[in-house]
């Protein structure tokens, strides 16, 4: 069996202890929650922290709570399965439950956490490989090399690794905020701003920081939404193309406000498609308008040869998914 590298293991019983330990050890420590992303990555030699700090004994981050004033609050250690099955989420934010249900396999969703999904590493054929595979060639940009090997011609000086977390597109569309804690204090920022767009360093989580919770404003409970994801195997896989759509209904069933379209897996971050709100807010949704929005989404997609699926196909999927997302909403197939 491929052994993991040697590391020390700590299991602090409180959030403060965990933050203190992570702060003290600095960049050589990494937190682990469900471990379903970190364990394979450590096995492949992508990360080799000297200290692994387990968060699993911290009960205070496991809750999923709704509050009429503050909206939805999800602890970072809530499992994806708990989102999928939570009656409150299924009633108020069915799109969140739906997105959670598309992550990996049912067994992994029992272990994998919300914080882990939101800080999921970006993925690429040239990156997610064992070290002996990677050592047969020069390192890619994400591993310290000069160029992105997946980019056309292999000459780009920007990392195009695919954003692959299924919860993030939906939560970004719903204007969620993320809270992080470290010995330096607590900070909360829009989830949208948490993501950098740089495949090599996809999010702004700093050394020593722990994701503690994600919140969704209460107004968003009235919204409708849908998440569509293409993957190689329907039973378990990362997305090769994905679209999240959320919108606020109006008395007219064909008219919506605050239309938010987010694409993922064909870009390096959950990307809000620009111009969609201006195009569609307050107007009756027609086939022509929806096609126009789908074209905007397709144009924003920059799939490179970093995962399964041909690039043009993945780009076209974004177009088709956008149309299907609107059709699902208009036909009432999803809440």
């Amino acid at each position: 069996m491929r052994l993991l590298h040697d590391f020390e293991y700590a299991e602090p019983s409180s959030l403060d202890q965990a933050a203190e330990l992570l702060g003290r050890v600095g960049r050589q420590a990494m937190p682990i929650a469900g471990g379903t992303d970190l364990m394979p990555s450590m096995r492949q030699g992508l990360f080799a922290p000297k200290v692994v700090v387990s968060l699993k004994a911290i009960d205070e981050l496991r809750d999923v709570a709704w509050d009429e004033r503050n909206g939805l609050s999800i602890g970072a250690l809530a499992t994806l399965r708990s989102l999928e099955t939570d009656p409150g989420i299924r009633r108020r934010f069915p799109v969140v439950a739906q997105a959670a249900s598309t992550v990996a396999s049912p067994t992994i969703r029992r272990t994998a956490t919300v914080g882990g999904n939101l800080s999921l590493d970006t993925r690429c054929y040239y990156y997610n490989q064992y070290d002996d595979w990677r050592s047969c060639t020069t390192p890619c940009l994400k591993m310290g090399g000069e160029f992105c090997k997946a980019s056309p011609g292999g000459k780009a000086r920007k990392c195009f690794a695919a954003f692959s977390a299924d919860l993030a597109p939906v939560l970004v569309a719903l204007d969620a905020s993320i809270t992080l804690l470290s010995v330096r204090g607590e900070r909360t920022l829009a989830l949208r701003d948490f993501y950098t767009g740089d495949g090599a360093r996809p999010n702004g989580k700093e050394d020593g920081e722990i994701i503690t919770r994600v919140t969704v404003p209460k107004e968003k409970a009235a919204y409708r939404g849908v998440y569509l994801k293409h993957r190689l195997r329907g039973s378990i896989d990362y997305p090769t193309a994905a679209v999240a759509l959320t919108l606020r209904p109006t008395p007219d069933p064909a008219v919506f406000e605050d239309v938010r379209l987010v694409i993922s897996a064909v870009v390096t971050q959950p990307l809000v498609v620009k111009g969609v709100a201006e195009l569609l807010d307050g107007k009756p949704l027609t086939e022509a308008l929806i096609d126009e929005a789908a074209s905007l989404a397709k144009k924003a997609a920059i799939p490179v040869a970093n995962t399964e699926g041909e690039r043009r196909h993945r780009k076209q999927l974004v177009f088709e998914f956008t149309r299907k997302a609107f059709a699902d909403i208009l036909e009432g197939a999803v809440k």
Binding site: E11, M39, P40, V52, K56, T107, I108, R110, T111
Partner: peptide, 10 residues
């Protein structure tokens, strides 16, 4: 649970 992704100490 997937025992290959679970640390024994967990």
């Amino acid at each position: 649970a997937l025992s290959c992704l679970t640390l024994a100490l967990a």
